[in-house]
Design a protein around this nucleic acid. Structure first.
Length: 332
DNA sequence: AAACGCTACAACCGCGCGAGG
DNA sequence: GCCTCGCGCGGTTGTAGCGTT
């Protein structure tokens, strides 16, 4: 039997919140904060459960909420993020400042789904409705919040020099959203190499220094919003020879990607790749979508320093060989 | 004016997970 | 290792408001 609803524990009020209740909750949180939601109703003098108070605060009363209709740009971003993340509403919401997961979920179910269907696009797969077969079977069953196999396959298509092997599976898809700029981290199980790549869809570049892993010790590799990309073509950071997993802080092997404290670095592959994967850019303007489709040497691509990033501008996917990742965590 | 249907939004519910005892 | 508790997430249901008949 599942847990009982908090409303069963005692006679608590359900349904819509009155202005008086809102005021009580607002006053209480303004004065004392909400360190423990379970104690909020009692202290605030509300006949509600803590869960209900939390929901009311997050979805309605929070001062940083953006009210009003969604902009077209926001809808576009939601569709884009949903294609990458699926129904991970909280992760999607984290990319839209002032919007709640509930709000986005409602918009999706009541509006966006319908619009996509009208355009002949399956809202679940983001593919034309006619191509919709076997999607359930494509899902990978292990791990947390997995990519669909089809998503993994299409992502791997973006990886120059990477050939998918039969043991390569997505086992986890973790949010970087709390960091503001990036959307996801994926951990690959069974892949032989440590892989990084960045893809951005339909937006121009604007990013700057240094990929950084700021929470490697918490088993959720992530990218700091404050120090991002040294050069734009992170898709080139792929298919590295191996990762010096046993000693991530060592700089002895310059050909390895390494994690050194908060800094994640990668080798200049110029020599090995005949300039194809050179990580420093040129001065030309180019859209990322064009980069992905081009075979241009990366060195001819723009090098954008100190340009502002906006939520949703980037999709960063960081792929780790699981075994190496575990070793890394042990070493921290 | 009343009944009905539709839509968008608010709120609830069950579950999983992690922390702490 | 087990249990309890609190939190957060995603799915689902409830409800208010509006338009149509």
């Amino acid at each position: 039997m599942g847990k009982q609803s908090c409303l069963h524990k005692q006679k608590l009020k359900k349904g819509l919140w009155s202005p008086e209740e809102d005021e009580k909750l607002l006053k209480h949180i303004a004065k004392y904060g909400h360190s423990s939601w379970s104690s909020v109703p009692k202290l605030a003098g509300l006949q509600r459960c803590g869960k209900s108070c939390r929901l009311r605060w997050i979805n309605y009363l929070r001062p940083d909420l953006k009210r009003g209709a969604f902009l077209q740009e926001e809808e576009d971003l939601i569709i884009e993020l949903h294609a990458a993340l699926g129904n991970r509403w909280s992760q999607i919401a984290a990319q839209l400042p002032g919007r709640t997961d509930n709000e986005i979920k409602n918009l999706w179910n009541s509006c966006i789904k319908k619009k996509l269907k009208q355009k002949g696009i399956d809202p679940n797969t983001h593919k034309p409705l006619s191509e919709n077969e076997g999607t359930e079977d494509d899902k990978i069953s292990s791990g947390t919040g997995n990519l669909k196999q089809t998503e993994l396959d299409s992502a791997l298509e973006l990886m120059p020099g990477i050939e998918k092997d039969s043991t390569m599976n997505s086992i986890g898809h973790y949010s970087l959203s709390q960091l503001g700029c990036c959307t996801s981290t994926t951990i690959l199980s069974g892949s032989s190499n440590l892989l990084f790549w960045l893809k951005q869809s339909n937006r121009e570049f604007g990013m700057n220094p240094e990929l950084s892993c700021s929470s490697i010790t918490s088993a959720t590799p992530s990218v700091s919003s404050s120090n991002l990309y040294n050069s734009m073509d992170l898709k080139a950071i792929a298919d590295l020879p191996y990762w010096e997993a046993g000693n991530p802080n060592s700089s002895s092997n310059k050909n390895c990607t390494s994690i050194n404290g908060d800094l994640c670095s990668w080798p200049d592959l110029t020599a090995e790749r005949g300039n194809k994967y050179h990580l420093t850019g040129g001065n030309e303007e180019m859209k990322w979508s064009e980069c992905l489709q081009s075979n241009l040497p990366v060195s001819s691509l723009p090098h954008c320093h100190n340009q502002p990033l906006h939520a949703g501008d980037l999709k960063v996917e960081t792929h780790f060989d699981l075994e190496s990742l575990n070793l890394c965590f042990q070493n921290h």
